[in-house]
Amino acid sequence: MKIILNNREEEFEKDTITVSEMLDLKMFTFRMRIIKINGELIPKDKYSTAIIHDGDNIQMFYLMSGG
């Protein structure tokens, strides 16, 4: 399947993956982040159950302490 991740196309072998699987496959290890799938915010406790489908638009950004 193909998805858009931060405005860039990404391809995965499976038909669907969870948010946790995507983070593992992309080796995104920094924990403080915000993820939206098609505009819907996915809370951290839903990462292992939220499903990413073909064509989904994923927006992700990191949260850095400081302010």
Binding site: I34, K36, G39, Q59, F61, Y62, M64, S65, G66, G67
Partner: peptide, 21 residues
């Protein structure tokens, strides 16, 4: 990000004793 969410900053430099704001 979308009509309800905007981010300002470099998204990488975390404040710490060695990298103060």
């Amino acid at each position: 990000i979308d009509e309800s969410l905007y981010v300002c900053g470099d998204e990488v430099s975390e404040a710490s004793d060695e990298l103060p704001p």
